[in-house]
Design a protein around this nucleic acid. Structure first.
Ligand code: NAD
Ligand code: NAD
Lengths: 241, 241
DNA sequence: AGGGGCTTGTGCATTCATTCACATGTCATG
DNA sequence: CATGACATGTGAATGAATGCACAAGCCCCT
């Protein structure tokens, strides 16, 4: 593989993106907040099922495993309004968070029908969360036409047609690393603007495409690091003490 | 579920952890840097296979999809030393990063042998990365004794024995959400101090235990948010323009 | 030997995220 | 109605991460 050079230390910026309120004003929700909103939702659903109608920031913080001040600041980004001295109305908050996150059902296509792609297609949490997997795509002709947990497998050459027919808006890449860039390119060519990549490869996308990655091997290595450090520290601690 | 209250806005802190150098001094590697080190490694391995022996921060930045200044700052945390005007020695850098991350092989146990647990146990990337899956654990008696992709399935009641026998140091939780806390508790009771949780549940652990989570549903929701915003913006843009 | 082109390492400014602390507001109760 | 207990929303302080810019250093070429 060749190494390409660029002309500057500078990296690419992410562009301005924010919620668009009904009045037309736009206020971006910080990344850090975004990662917590779904967690709040889960906690809220849980207590709603128990008949709880109001939660304080502290209660919600406990449910989400975070700090109460953070909960309040996060919710303030939604324009959500609790009542002082009382807390937040559970159902209203659920509606507001869900609305801020998009609300509607968003169909998903998975590229790569191997171990991971199949496991993901069987994951009922996606469907429950409003992200039904409507198509599996693979380069393996022998999988063509098969159904996997109710989802039809299509050949990668027909990606455009499948995406158009199913109205997919999100793509998941679960191909081997060496095929990830191609898979993403094809998804983008098919019109998708949001991709979640599971392959351990650095892929590039046009600036208007949102790309997120889930890197399991890295997660383990980080844990491995802390484990390593802990053991080293214990060793030195014992040696000294 | 009951809602427990705490007495303060304050959350729990993570404690001081750092690399321990041979001279006994300790210097922590920032989280943000930790998440990039494995990515650098992949890039380095790739170019090493092509016979490249030296890389500049800019080349490595391109391989990792980040900014060159960030690469240099990251590597400076390792005490790594490149040569000015030249760059970094690929093999030396690989050794240094690998050493900082722990280096040695770390066996892994997976709790929950369902869709996800099985997919993970078949993932050769773990083995290749020095994290062999040596045990699968499930509460389902009918799985007991079976082999899944070369890994034996054991009942959850024998977790202690399995962990001890295999010398596992990392635990992966792939049980349903409602069983996640119990699974983590058992792993901790068995002596593990590092856990990766895939279940969409907030779990608590003693402060000496490192817990990381992978939350796929949240990833999709974040992408859904940007998609939603993008579409709203396009709509307003068209309406106005 | 010396000049010119590259590259590292880092001080500094900036931006983003977290947390504190409190003024402001709500409600229940007597 | 007055009082006290309780919570929100947010300025301000702190801390973490990013990215810039440049002095210091290395190597090749003439
Ligand atoms: N299995 C896991 O648990 C796991 C965990 C973490 C990451 N990953 C990553 O996810 C990816 C998939 O892993 P896996 O275990 O499912 O691998 P796999 O080999 O089982 O499946 C890969 C699938 O992708 C298909 N494919 C190959 N090239 C393609 C292309 N150009 N277009 C469309 N499909 C193509 C293959 O036919 C195959 O079906 C890998 O990059 C892996 O590193 C897997
Ligand atoms: N399938 C996916 O692709 C996917 C994706 C993201 C997240 N997840 C999450 O991962 C977890 C597992 O998903 P799955 O699809 O594999 O579910 P699954 O139902 O297929 O498997 C769960 C397994 O856990 C076992 N189990 C239940 N209680 C247990 C206990 N107390 N101790 C040990 N084992 C126990 C069950 O017997 C079963 O084998 C879930 O929390 C799910 O939300 C799954």
């Amino acid at each position: 593989m060749a190494i390409a050079g660029t002309t500057s230390d500078r990296g690419q910026s992410l562009g301005e993106i924010g919620v668009v309120r009904s009045d037309g004003s736009s206020s971006p929700i910080p990344e850090a907040t975004l990662t917590r909103l779904p967690v709040y939702m889960r906690g809220l659903v849980e207590v709603a099922e128990d008949g709880v109608t109001t939660v304080s920031s502290r209660q919600l913080a406990d449910l989400a495993g975070v700090n109460a001040a953070k909960v309040r600041k996060d919710l303030s980004h939604l324009g959500a309004h609790g009542k002082r001295g009382v807390g937040y109305d559970v159902n209203r908050l659920l509606t507001e968070i869900s609305g801020a996150l998009g609300g509607s059902v968003t169909p998903v296509v998975i590229v790569g029908a191997g171990n991971l792609g199949r496991a993901l297609s069987r994951y009922d949490g996606f469907m429950a969360g409003g992200f039904p997997v409507v198509a599996l795509i693979d380069s393996d002709r022998s999988l063509e036409g098969r159904m996997i947990s109710g989802v039809p497998v299509t050949h990668v050459d027909e990606m455009d047609a499948v995406v158009a027919a199913t109205g997919c808006q999100l793509g998941i890449v679960a191909t081997p690393a060496h095929a990830a860039q191609e898979a993403v390119d094809r998804l983008v060519a098919a019109g998708l603007r949001s991709v979640l990549n599971f392959a351990p490869a650095v892929v590039s996308v046009p600036s208007e495409v949102q790309l997120r990655k889930v890197d399991l091997a890295t997660e383990l290595q980080i844990l491995g690091y802390y484990e390593h450090v802990r053991i080293s520290q214990e060793a030195t601690g014992q040696a000294v003490g």
